[in-house]
């Protein structure tokens, strides 16, 4: 494997966003790119990352390899990179280590780190293609704000999508709270758009603790996409450049 990222910052932000949810992960490398799928310890949330080969320049992977990496170790090394550094990941065919090289485009500094790999026997789940009842696209910062506000009142949030809009509501010991967003197009600031695509109304309840955790990815993309269907996990997607993505799935709470 040899994969060169124009900005080390991308990988730094991705790892930073998921490291509190999952600890040890396999980075599955093949000629289409670098993928990661991992569940949190409670098997309630799942992270699915895809960094497509096109996100790297150049990208070369001659043989499929799984790099088992402890994310807190990876984060320690990624913190040694400047945000603007060029990052090159390298690994042999049957690797014991993954090699990370950081190059400054402005100076002649070149730093090199090896991280010891681990054998991770990871459960892999098949995620079926789903036609979601509701797909909501909104500013990532707005979603983060809603989750942070509501967790002050309750452990859970009900997300209800209708043709009127999407309503996030919660109830707790001190009282209730709700935030409703309607479809909204801002021609001058399209990054503030809220788009609700609905085939049928849907209402589901989720744990806010996990949603707040997912929102650590807000720095990766201006927009977040929420996909909901009755009685299936919520999909929270942050789209990255070159069709790469960071997705989170969250199992719903059921019954009341």
């Amino acid at each position: 494997l040899e994969a060169r990222l124009e900005q080390a910052n991308l990988l730094k932000k991705v790892v930073d966003a998921i490291k509190d949810l999952v600890q040890d992960c396999n980075f599955d490398c093949n000629d289409s790119g670098i993928a990661l799928q991992a569940m949190d310890n409670s098997h309630v949330a799942l992270v699915s990352m895809m960094l497509k080969a096109e996100s790297f320049s150049p990208f070369r992977c001659d043989r499929n390899i799984a790099l088992g990496i402890n994310l807190s170790s990876l984060m320690k090394v990624l913190r040694c990179a400047q945000n603007e550094d060029i990052l090159t990941l390298k690994a042999d065919d049957a690797p014991d280590v993954v090699n990370l090289v950081f190059e400054s485009s402005e100076s002649d500094r070149l730093s090199e780190y090896d991280i010891k790999l681990m054998d991770i026997d990871q459960e892999h789940l098949g995620i079926p293609e789903t036609e979601y009842s509701a797909t909501i696209s909104m500013p990532a910062a707005e979603f983060q704000r809603i989750c942070r506000d509501l967790i002050a009142l309750s452990e859970s949030v009900a997300i209800e999508a209708t043709k009127e809009g999407v309503k996030f509501s919660c109830s707790g010991d001190i009282g209730n709270g709700a935030v409703t967003l309607r479809s909204h197009t801002n021609v001058e600031k399209p990054e503030l758009n809220v788009d609700i695509a609905l085939s049928e109304p849907v209402a589901l309840t989720f744990s806010l603790k996990y949603l707040v955790n997912f929102c650590k990815a807000s720095g990766l993309s201006g927009t977040v996409k929420l996909c909901l269907s009755s009685e299936v996990p919520l999909l929270v997607e942050y789209t990255l450049a070159s069709n790469s993505y960071l997705r989170f799935y969250l199992a719903p709470k059921i019954g009341d």
Binding site: G126, P233, Y249, P252
Partner: peptide, 14 residues
């Protein structure tokens, strides 16, 4: 109150 479900109830291991 509502019960938390787990992912295996929806996604099958491959």
């Amino acid at each position: 109150s509502a019960q938390q479900t787990r992912l295996e109830g929806f996604f099958k291991p491959t």
